[in-house]
Design a protein around this nucleic acid. Structure first.
Lengths: 347, 347
DNA sequence: AATTAGCACTCAATACGAGTGAGTGCTAAC
DNA sequence: GTTAGCACTCACTCGTATTGAGTGCTAATT
């Protein structure tokens, strides 16, 4: 069987209609709503073919057809025309972060919110993989006798802090001294580049504060890159409640409990085969069991040719692909631009 | 009509059973399950009385009875015996924050998680009203030409930061100078006590950096107290999905969209008549429309006799009051103790 | 006087069956 | 190759009967 022009048009009609109505669509509906110049009977025949080819399926004998995963796949690969955004939407994306926003965290936050609002699905935004980010400032503050706070500011605007135990006899002057050595040695360095040799140098200079240094180094090497550099911003989680496919609470539970598990969410965004541009995962193409009847549309963002991370939208397979692809694409490149502006000169 | 011993026992049985099963409970069920030594017919008569008195009601004529709000109220006031926690649970609360946790934020976080886990409802934890907290350290860091980050560390361990625009010609040395004046003048002060006279003093000392000072002051006065000092930690939001009363998605939506509105959530915890100890709000006793079929159990936490904030649990009116009251009470006093330890000597 | 057995009654929930209608597949005519 | 026509399928709806948990009332019992 071959995929001719008319079959394509019918498949397109079925998918569009189903995305719109969430109801199985029958031959008469198509002949009525879409002017294809052929009768319902002809469409019926073609639909039988399309079903044989695996692009559509029937929930039950006397129902209309719904697109299969394969059908969606053919649609996004061959049939779909990206939706144009309205002026207003374009503007929302372009001015989503005015010049005022200078912090990477805030930018990612807004990106998520905007993605969720524009699509009405759930938005996922991965923090940039910050092999690239460098230490801007380190500060040790004495909080109480035996307690100090370590604050590390990265050039991305990310601020990490943690309270650590220190010997009772350490004073704020001691801490200032350590701070300034740490700053002198580590400023402008990436976390990854802080190697043993460098730490030894610092040890040498600050021999008498060896033990507190241990704590500081440990914190910066372990805690900071792992905890903060790999966060996922989730927005619009409750948007899924508006989708008819999630009208029963059990399905909601499955999805929400997945989204609660941060490591699984990370996996979702860490698909290996993501090149540049927009990637679409339809239904069973997703590796995670729990979202096998969802689709994910993701795109990477980057500075220059260095890929920093991924943003994405999660919705039911009956997702408005034409629109979401445009939004995700547009937002990812806008995010790239914005980050470039913020981090400009620090690459 | 008077509330005699037997009526109480029957009311108690009805409430316990309903809390357990979420099904209306009939006279036969009670005579079978609870050994009251009287027949179902007698219980029926008593139930009719209880209904007249407004303690129970019938969803429809041929159904059993369910407790009314008034019934729950009588129960928690007169009948309920607090549930004993198991050794294990006691331990979880007591060791919930080991000595390592020294940051107020982290403590509140864990409090919320533990509350939600122990009760299986939704936990709300209000950050301490920090009229009491004082500035520990202020740091200005030059991020790029024309951009600086202000970092304010409070003695509670809270860290606030924000990037602000500054004149292009300001150097890190300038910022250090400003930082040290700010520290000298503001350290140990509460946000509330930073008055105009003090700011004028600083102006005087730093006349040449007037404009950047404006920014710093503005940030500290406006942004920090409002944004960070009044956060609500929400945990276990999805626990409500396990309650049969939330098996339909529309009710879930109502509640979730309430919980998304931070100001409304704040109002929920800011009930005026909260003295010390545990407060219970049942159904319509709640002021917020959206939780009129929920109950809230709250308790304040304090240092000395200064009330700092409130923690609470939100669940359906058919809530396990006996257990939740114990948990909330126990956790609030534990929270008080822990905060006292952390903030000891800074009050 | 309080309790209880008995009974008629109510009503949500369930099951069942007929009817409806949207949809199909097949066939024969165009 | 297309389409009109038709028999067929099957989820869905709606009305009716059945069931059963529960009630309230009354009369008998303690």
């Amino acid at each position: 069987m071959k995929m001719d022009e008319r079959k394509q048009q019918i498949l397109l009609a079925i998918i569009k209609d189903y995305i719109d109505t969430a109801e199985p669509v029958g031959s008469r509906t198509i002949s009525r709503r879409y002017k294809l110049g052929v009768s319902a009977a002809t469409i019926r025949n073609e639909m039988a073919d399309l079903e044989d080819m695996g692009f559509i399926e029937q929930p039950h004998t006397s129902a209309g057809r719904i697109p299969s995963n394969l059908g969606y796949r053919y649609y996004v690969d061959c049939l779909m025309q990206r939706e144009q955004l309205t002026e207003e939407e374009e503007g929302a994306i372009r001015h989503g972060y005015e010049d005022k926003v200078r912090e990477v965290g805030e930018v990612l936050n807004r990106t998520g919110r905007l993605l969720a609002n524009l699509t009405n699905y759930t938005a996922l935004v991965q923090t940039p993989r910050m092999g690239i980010s460098t230490v801007k400032h380190i500060q040790l503050v004495l909080m109480a006798s035996g307690q100090a706070m370590i604050i590390v500011v990265m050039d991305t605007g990310a601020v990490n802090h943690q309270i650590v135990s220190i010997p009772e006899n350490i004073t704020q002057q001691d801490l200032d001294q350590i701070s300034s050595v740490l700053n002198a040695k580590l400023q402008g360095r990436t976390m990854g580049s802080i190697r043993l040799t460098l730490i030894k140098e610092i040890y040498f200079e600050l021999a008498k504060h060896r033990n507190i240094l241990d704590l500081a180094i440990e914190l910066m090497k372990d805690q900071i890159p792992s905890v903060k550099e790999d966060k996922i911003y989730l927005e619009g989680v409750f948007n899924i409640l508006n989708q008819p496919e999630f009208h029963n609470v059990d399905k909601v539970k499955v999805l929400l409990s997945l989204l609660e598990q941060e490591d699984k969410v990370k996996d979702i965004l860490k698909q290996p085969n993501q090149g540049l541009g927009v990637t679409i995962k339809i239904g069973s193409e997703n590796s995670q069991q729990e979202i096998q009847d969802c689709s994910m549309i993701t795109a990477t963002y980057q500075i220059g040719d260095k890929i920093l991370g991924t943003i994405g939208v999660l919705g039911p397979t009956r997702m408005d692909y034409a629109r979401v692809v445009t939004v995700v694409d547009s937002m990812s490149s806008n995010l790239s631009r914005t980050l470039e502006r913020i981090l400009k000169g620090n690459g």
